[in-house]
């Protein structure tokens, strides 16, 4: 007899197959390749003009390590949008589509725990998002090697690991939103509104009115992916400061904890909601 752990593997492979054959996956693939191509072009062609971004300091006059950090920062800055779009495409309809598309009639009567179904689908969604961002990361590494003649160092690895953690937490967050609704469109819109409007509005209000850094927002925690290279600190209202050093272990730890908390709470919430989900 197949145990629940065995069923988990079967569920993951089933949903992974359904995801990577979907139009959403190919759309994200195209977007990832397009952004990767643009960033590669930018890196190789206009690398000498980076002083525009770095406060008038000529890029050629920067130290070697700072140049490397600057390039990786820019790649990571652009990258931070990709997991969000990927999670929206794969996570937002994850639960709601089972109801809207009536596939719930096919899977709910199966002899499997809803938690196994949810974790299996979640794992598959995270895996396809990893593929999407990994394509970008491969382009990033190639560009880096061409520019600097070596592979990026340990900080790049930190950034990549934080990126993987962010994908888990943002996907979990979209699963939670998806499990609230029975219509995909509501889930899509809600995720976008929460992440890009509500989170940003909260950040600005707390920063400008109360001089408080909203470190607990997922969008703020996600900024650590690029801040490990160059730490742009906006804790002082209206006067963002730039530290040319990367964020230290303190901010990295806090951001990682925030992302883990989002992931755990979101998955727990979606599990409770999915377990109670009924097709009326």
């Amino acid at each position: 007899m197949v145990q629940e752990t065995g069923k988990f593997g079967i569920v993951v492979s089933q949903y992974f197959r359904n995801y990577y054959r979907s139009r959403s996956f190919y759309l994200m693939l195209v977007i990832s390749l397009l952004i990767s191509g643009l960033m590669t072009y930018f890196s190789l062609k206009y690398i000498g003009n980076l002083h525009v971004t770095f406060g008038g300091v000529s890029f050629s006059s920067l130290s070697s390590s700072l140049k490397e950090s600057a390039v990786l920062y820019l790649w990571a800055f652009v990258l931070s949008y990709l997991p969000v779009f990927s999670a929206v495409f794969f996570g937002s309809p994850a639960i709601s589509s089972e109801i809207e598309n009536k596939t719930a009639y096919h899977i709910f009567p199966l002899p499997i725990k809803r938690s196994t179904l949810l974790f299996g689908k979640f794992t598959a969604a995270v895996a396809v998002s990893y593929i999407i961002v990994s394509i970008y990361t491969i382009f990033e590494i190639i560009s880096y090697v061409i520019l600097f003649g070596s592979f990026p160092g340990i900080v790049f690895l930190y950034s990549y690991l934080l990126l993987l953690l962010f994908i888990i937490s943002i996907t979990a967050f979209t699963f939670l939103v998806s499990s609230i609704f029975n219509k995909n469109m509501y889930a899509y819109i809600t995720v976008f509104l929460l992440y890009y409007l509500i989170f940003n509005a909260l950040y600005i209000i707390l920063d400008f009115l109360y001089n408080y850094n909203a470190f607990f927002l997922l969008s703020e925690a996600a900024s650590i992916i690029e801040r490990v290279f160059i730490d742009i600190n906006t804790t002082v209202p209206g006067s963002a400061t730039i530290s040319l050093n990367g964020a230290g272990s303190g901010p990295i730890g806090i951001a990682a904890i925030v992302m883990v908390i989002y992931a755990v709470i979101s998955i727990a919430g979606s599990l409770i909601l999915f377990d109670r989900k009924e097709v009326k």
């Binding site: 089933q14 197959r17 054959r21 009536k102 009639y105 096919h106 009567p109």
Partner: peptide, 11 residues
């Protein structure tokens, strides 16, 4: 078979 079930379209 409950109501008119649908399946995952890419499988």
């Amino acid at each position: 078979i409950i109501e008119q079930p649908e399946f995952y379209t890419y499988l």
